[in-house]
Amino acid sequence: MEKLTSGIFFGQTDQTIDLDEFIITNTEYTHEFVDWHYHENAYFTFLIAGKVSEINKNDHHKCGPGTLLFHNCQEPHYNVKPKGYTRGMHLELSEKWLLQFAGKNMAKGSFEIINPLVKSLFHQILLCTKNCDNTSMLTLHSLVLNAADQLSNRSNIKRYKNPPKWVAKLIQLLHDSPQLSHSLESLSTAIGIHPVHLSRYFPKYFGCNLGAYIKRMRLCLAAAELNAEKKSVTQIAYECGFYDQTHLIRCFKEEFQFTPRRYQRYLK
């Protein structure tokens, strides 16, 4: 079985950024099939465009634009890609950093991350890789550290290893219907807790208030749709739960400092 060393991925890598304990690579995937292999370093994969499937001994991940996966080091897997343009960004973490800062609490295995607070960081990291001057490198390093710090918990729910059952129910409910307008009362009824309890404890497990979580979830979904380039900004706005195109543009610029159209042009 082939072992891939630091900074090496199958395909055509056109950018590599070395940040001491971290390596960022931007790669176009050119292989329709990659046989079983593993990587020297633990790493994140953030799919930018196209589709690819990753299969390991426990899971089968079907990835589209905006999918974020984490892979522990030495984790065997293989990949299948349909014909067409596919690109991804990788963030590798050195063994030294993992041992020093993640330690025994580091997430195990290979799995998908859906937390929009984490995914938003990767959209911002991607934008920073397109403008690598001295100032942006400091910002990039800070974003990378913030993203890597999420490994303390597999579910990415702040520090709590055994959250109550309503947390998982709420995650599924929100991500299954990101375009719906939820009320505190309707969500509380659906997951079986009191609205006051939900309002009070949501930040404890999610790291922000309910409104901020839903907003970032919708923005990450919109960014992924923009990368796919198959829909108009107006259509994306409605499908992702924004009032209209103007609402999406305003929120998108607040989060990423780019309008949706400029975001598309910048990443090409």
Rank of each mutant, 00 (worst) to 15 (best):
123 H>G: 07
124 Q>S: 09
130 K>D: 09
133 D>C: 03
134 N>Y: 10
134 N>F: 10
139 T>R: 08
141 H>R: 12
143 L>K: 10
144 V>C: 08
147 A>S: 13
152 S>G: 11
154 R>G: 05
155 S>D: 13
156 N>P: 06
158 K>H: 04
159 R>Q: 15
161 K>C: 09
162 N>S: 11
165 K>W: 11
166 W>R: 08
166 W>P: 01
167 V>H: 04
168 A>G: 13
168 A>E: 10
170 L>W: 05
173 L>T: 07
176 D>A: 14
176 D>H: 11
179 Q>T: 06
179 Q>Y: 14
179 Q>I: 07
180 L>N: 15
181 S>V: 14
182 H>Y: 08
184 L>P: 06
189 T>H: 09
190 A>L: 11
195 P>E: 11
197 H>A: 08
199 S>V: 06
199 S>F: 01
206 F>E: 03
206 F>Q: 07
208 C>Y: 01
208 C>F: 02
208 C>H: 03
208 C>M: 06
210 L>D: 06
212 A>L: 04
212 A>I: 07
214 I>L: 10
214 I>A: 06
214 I>P: 02
221 L>H: 14
221 L>P: 02
223 A>Y: 02
226 L>P: 00
227 N>M: 02
232 S>T: 09
233 V>M: 15
233 V>Y: 12
236 I>Y: 03
242 F>Q: 00
242 F>D: 03
243 Y>H: 13
244 D>T: 02
